[in-house]
């Protein structure tokens, strides 16, 4: 209850945002906004969860898409396993959902336990290495995962509690609700005392340790939460595409997620979401003119990193702060004149 009161503003914003999203998805006749937004939910969760690590804790992970793919594959494989769906009946889909998230949490716990003790640079490339390991497992275990073809044959989506995820409208609303709940959870995590502990570790881990914070444990918890949230993103994408593909576990997916964060802004909560939209739009626009999208995207990254040196929302925030200060200075000067 306390939580509800403390975060009532955020909850209200989330509820309004959810209503708007649902209205857009159901109000527009064509499937395009629904498809665009559903994939935005998935990649938005990937970017937002990665920002828990990079922006809030200072753990630069280059292998975050591994948890995204793990969630998607775990969900798809469970739903395709006849023994599982038959024994659980109508409860199969929610059970698979929960099990996929739980599995992702467990997987990120194992990888995190190895990685979070290491320094920045080791952390970045070990997370990358473990991601490529998962990628090679997915590619080589052809009999289970379908190898480079991906999880084929479609993922069955039996109805439960009157929700039929095979229906595009039901699916869209379900994904939107799941997405919003996850965003709210992350909001609570970052604004809670735990979230401030994360920021303290980012700014000065040694100091945090002196104050009695168990740095390794806090980092590990953050790693697991972030991995699980990315797993939810993967489940949404698996639901949406009715399959799972090895590219989700490829390193480029992680690089893209990192760039989404950078593009949107590291220091604003919803920055990664803006980054996800911006990158998607950029991709689509570039694709209209040339098939060599990678060169253009690469050039844009270089421009943002070396030229702007911060994300779009960071830029807006700085501009706003500067303007306020200029205003303040101007009024002060007028006061002096008088």
């Amino acid at each position: 209850m306390n939580l509800l009161r403390e975060f009532r503003r955020d909850i209200a914003i989330a509820a309004v945002a959810l209503l708007v999203l649902v209205a857009i998805g159901l109000g527009v006749d064509s499937p395009w906004p629904r498809d665009f937004l559903t994939s935005f939910f998935a990649f938005g969760l990937l970017a937002m969860s990665l920002n828990l690590l990079i922006g809030y804790t200072g753990l630069v992970s280059f292998g975050h898409a591994a948890y995204f793919a793990f969630g998607g594959y775990a969900f798809g494989l469970l739903m395709q396993w006849n023994g599982f769906t038959e024994s659980l009946g109508a409860a199969a889909l929610p059970a698979a959902f929960v099990a996929a998230i739980g599995g992702t949490a467990l997987y990120s716990l194992v990888i995190g336990a190895i990685c979070v003790r290491l320094t920045e640079i080791y952390f970045a490339f070990l997370t990358l290495a473990f991601q490529m390991f998962l990628y090679s497992v997915i590619l080589s275990a052809v009999t289970i995962t379908g190898g480079d073809q991906g999880l084929m044959g479609g993922i069955p989506r039996p109805p439960f509690l009157g929700i039929d995820l095979a229906d595009p409208h039901h699916r869209y609303v379900f994904c939107a609700v799941v997405f919003m709940v996850c965003i709210l959870i992350m909001r609570v995590v970052t604004e809670s005392p735990f979230g401030y502990t994360l920021r303290m570790i980012r700014d000065n881990a040694q100091r945090a340790a002196f104050l009695g914070v168990n740095v390794t444990r806090v980092k590990l918890i953050c790693f697991v939460v972030s991995g699980s949230m990315a797993g939810v993103g993967g489940v949404i994408l698996a639901l949406f595409t009715s399959g799972a593909y090895p590219e989700w576990a490829f390193w480029a997916q992680s690089g893209e997620a990192i760039f989404m964060i950078m593009l949107g802004g590291l220091n604003v909560f919803v920055g990664p979401l803006l980054g996800a939209v911006a990158l998607r739009v950029l991709n689509d626009v570039v694709q209209m003119y040339t098939s060599h999208t990678e060169i253009v995207i690469g050039a844009v990254i270089l421009f943002v990193v070396l030229g702007l040196r911060r994300g779009l929302l960071d830029f807006a925030l700085d501009w706003w702060v500067e303007r306020q200060q200029a205003k303040l200075a101007a009024t002060n000067r007028e006061d002096d004149k008088r």
Partner: peptide, 19 residues
């Protein structure tokens, strides 16, 4: 920080692979 180094390397890989 490592983030910037990672991003410019990522950009470079994308560009070189495409070239």
């Amino acid at each position: 920080n490592v983030l910037m180094q990672l991003l410019v390397c990522y950009a470079f890989i994308l560009i070189v692979d495409d070239l």
